[in-house]
């Protein structure tokens, strides 16, 4: 299948102050894949994500979303098929009520009002937040905010979900619920995170970024077994792959 593809080729980007953030990133993500993007702080993960929705334009190289290269002309289509969930839900929930927020995208797409209603209800029930419909977003808990932020993207029925640190600020149970929800989504998923246990649960493929370059791209388990490489990239084995501190002390 050629559609729902994300292809990044030789992508370079430097911030206006001269800091080079990306130095030739290459990868290709296919329909239905679930891919983690991991790396140290400042490795260039967020900069990369900002290219996937056309917020930053590459200085060199190109980005393809679906069947089109990402240019000014195709920007609207790309943003429609790439649903971006931000790290801080407060940045994403800017409307006065949860309903308005989830309806924001569909209304901007110019959908008929009945359809908007249907989509909002469907998106909210998918994340189990239908009961929050009429609440103002600033009164919600962290987990509820995250759920609504995801619903606000789902309501546009994107093909690709891009998430920046989806588990920050969630309590363990909220985190577990989020992982289960994400597991049930059929979308192509790209998740930038430090939560390697989440990666183990959700992503069969992992891309490691270091100093603006892809240093590894392959099956998650293979990458996580290479301890020397992980340490080099400022990462460590997911806790579940590490020896249990209590059992190993006994042994």
């Amino acid at each position: 299948m050629s559609h729902h593809i994300v292809e990044v080729a030789d992508l370079c980007y430097a911030y206006p102050d001269g800091t080079a953030a990306l130095n030739g990133v290459n990868f290709c993500i296919h329909h239905g894949e679930s891919v983690a993007i991991v790396g140290a702080n400042g490795a260039g993960k967020s900069t990369l994500l900002l290219h996937l929705n056309g917020y930053l334009t590459p200085m060199q190289g190109r980005v393809r979303i679906g069947d089109y290269p990402l240019t000014k002309e195709t920007l609207q289509d790309a943003r429609r098929s790439v649903g971006m969930v931000f790290q801080d839900p407060d940045d994403q929930l800017f409307m006065p009520t949860v309903y308005d927020d989830v309806a924001f995208g569909p209304l901007n797409l110019g959908l008929p009002l009945d359809e908007v209603d249907l989509r909002v209800e469907a998106a909210l029930s998918q994340v189990g937040a239908l009961h929050l419909k009429d609440r103002p977003p600033y009164h919600l808990s962290g987990g509820e905010k995250r759920a609504v932020a995801i619903a606000s993207v789902l309501s546009m029925s994107p093909d690709i979900l891009v998430m920046d640190e989806p588990t920050t600020g969630l309590d363990p149970r909220g985190r577990r619920m989020l992982i289960e929800q994400l597991h049930s989504f059929q979308h192509t998923k790209i998740i930038a995170t430090h939560d390697l246990d989440l990666v183990l649960d959700l992503c069969e493929r992992t891309i490691v970024i270091r100093e603006g370059r892809v240093t590894a791209d392959g099956p998650t388990l293979d990458i996580f077994r290479d301890e020397a490489f992980l340490a080099e990239s400022h990462l460590e084995k997911p806790l579940r792959l590490q020896a249990c501190p209590i059992c190993s002390r006994k042994g």
Partner: peptide, 22 residues
């Protein structure tokens, strides 16, 4: 910075200068 991020979030969802509400 927050304003920038919010603007980005709005653009990602098709904001074109008009807020539509039901």
């Amino acid at each position: 910075e927050r304003a920038q991020r919010i603007h980005l979030a709005m653009q990602c969802r098709g904001f074109d200068g008009e807020i539509r509400m039901r």
